[in-house]
Design a binder for these strands. Sequence first.
DNA 1: ATCGTTTGTCTACTGAATAAACAAAGTTTA
DNA 2: TAAACTTTGTTTATTCAGTAGACAAACGAT
Lengths: 396, 396
Amino acid sequence: MRMTKTFNQHVVKKENKSLVLETIKDRSPISRADVSNVTGLNKGTVSSLVSELLDEALLNESGPGQSSGGRRPVMLLFNEKAGYSIGIDLGVNYLLGVLTDLKGNICHEEVMKFKDLGYEEILTNLFHIIDTLIASTPESPYGIIGIGIGVPGAVNKDGNILLAPNLDWKNIHLKEIVENKYDLPVIVENEANAGAYGEQKFGVGKSFSNIIYISVGIGIGVGLILNGKLYKGNNGFSGELGHMTIQVDGLPCRCGNQGCWELYASERALVKRAEGRNIVAKPGEDISLEGLTSLAENEDKEAIQLFEQIGDYLGVGINNIINTFNPEQVIIGNRMAAASKWLDQPLKNRMINQTLWFQQKGFQINYSELSTHSTALGVAAFSVENFFRNDLLQNM
Amino acid sequence: MRMTKTFNQHVVKKENKSLVLETIKDRSPISRADVSNVTGLNKGTVSSLVSELLDEALLNESGPGQSSGGRRPVMLLFNEKAGYSIGIDLGVNYLLGVLTDLKGNICHEEVMKFKDLGYEEILTNLFHIIDTLIASTPESPYGIIGIGIGVPGAVNKDGNILLAPNLDWKNIHLKEIVENKYDLPVIVENEANAGAYGEQKFGVGKSFSNIIYISVGIGIGVGLILNGKLYKGNNGFSGELGHMTIQVDGLPCRCGNQGCWELYASERALVKRAEGRNIVAKPGEDISLEGLTSLAENEDKEAIQLFEQIGDYLGVGINNIINTFNPEQVIIGNRMAAASKWLDQPLKNRMINQTLWFQQKGFQINYSELSTHSTALGVAAFSVENFFRNDLLQNM
DNA sequence: ATCGTTTGTCTACTGAATAAACAAAGTTTA
DNA sequence: TAAACTTTGTTTATTCAGTAGACAAACGAT
């Protein structure tokens, strides 16, 4: 096989094969004839590509379907059990691991909560979760096709974690470490980027191609899907919008700046304000997002007011986002999404009064459906995508 | 010729033809053999594509070049005079029109300054400039291949100007109007988007693919080049960063918001502050950017201080931009770029102290080289690109 | 049972890229 | 100066992917 710089016939084939596979994934069960209709490819072309995909175990033929007045079609199914993917959401005080099939269905799930663990301990727990997930993987043609890990920090293009302030990690070569241990393709990605991708693939962002996903947790991170693709910036550090200045001479932030958005609109901001007011949810326990949520559920005026203030400040940043990106959709995700009930109105008030009217057309704001799972599902899906990209080139 | 949805052999040819043309444009004069080496395409393929491009008058053969130990090569030149493009920068108080060849060289230029003109009058002047430029166009195979117009406002994907606040225009179908009058392809685009494209093609952004171009004029507009492509958002309204909130409870803006960036860092902000201090450049004349520049040139402390303040506020917004996009380059363009001397230090102070360190790697900040011409050159280049896209498909 | 329809495969063909041969026009070397 | 390389650009035979259309198998409707 020659490998020149611009070989091109192969690109056409790969592209079409991928198109056929995607079509079947989306519209399964579907006949060859319909794939041809939908894609515009010739019947013969579809037939030959499908037979390759069958050989590769990526498709199954199911029994004959309904006749529409002629020969009954052979229905094709995407073989989502041809392989499995591991996705890990490595949070500040939790680890969430999922085993998904190639379609993103969760087959197995492992959660672990903790507090104030050091690097070594977290790594041990991470390995344990991965081991458990591997052990739970059913037999399949391709086995585990990769491990994805989402982390709350800046990840460069080599998969090195340069800085994860809330974990207090610096310059950790996590991709390399995990790759060496398991001898599998590993992807390490920022949790907001992964979350954005997860929402676009499986969540409320399914039908959109310009999505801004705002991960509101301890801090704020943003994942950008622009023109249908994840935008990662020059080195992979885009979306650090938590440190966008919204108040020039505002509160000092440990990033060195003042008046950063996340000082006003994050979970930490919420808790800090609650502490300042000496709000207590359960006697003897530190106040937390969960505590405030349950207070608000019980109509506690003060707690609701705190959430509304967060919503208001979220609105400020979202206005900036709208002015910057003119997106189709803003998704609010991560833990704070659970408080949508109290955030929504103040947040939208900011928008309605202040955004140039033409920005609003065809725009919507949503709260994560996958809630705490968007990151884990997103990183798992990254591996799947990589697997397809490489595999489709295999027999060429 | 069939036109199915996913026919693909043709795409390959178009792509390669375009690649050959680009290569010759960039490295002219160059031989067929070298094009083959550079692109990786087979010599025969290059020969046949080149002969088509020669037929289409897009290339010229010059005399034989230097031998490198064998037969002397026939050098190929891009025929930049095969057609011409008109680019107009429609400003608040000026009109700049350029006639460029296909490579973006300015062949003719028309400027017009005015103040407080209404819509009808500006349109008359616009037509006059276009007429003059058309009259000055040399004979050529393709003639004028299009008209591009950059405007300081929000333009949707149909070329309608929805809102140009500083012109006080609303919902003007400019593309349609000009198209009907001249029967030529017309492109209407936001001035910052055009400027960004102009800088990427011809200015300081030539070697970068993640560029944020900040047009600092009366207001502030931003053009985004992400992954090498202009990002326009869902409806074409991205980059309205002039209305990014940098001070939650700041000055009221006529956009309905408070604390917008352009209230602190634009030409209008500068002039307003100068007026507040009763600074006078020439007796009896309103203070202006030009007036303040000449004062600063003469070491006027107060004027310099005003510029430095603008620089400081520009830095605040640029920090936000860096955190958002992790770009390779930020370009400061439009009229304020002329004051780079006094802006630069305060602006960089903001960055150095406050930006996460890893964002700075491989990042640079530049001032427009094309200065007032980036928008006009950018829109002219849009037409050229469109022309090539359509023309290369012609003989297929 | 016959006719028309739908499905999926097969065959012949087209169009584009490639490899390799080749002629033309140089340089270098003996 | 002639022979031997070198480089350039064209030409020819081949490969490969997609397409059109023929075709057989399988089905419903009359």
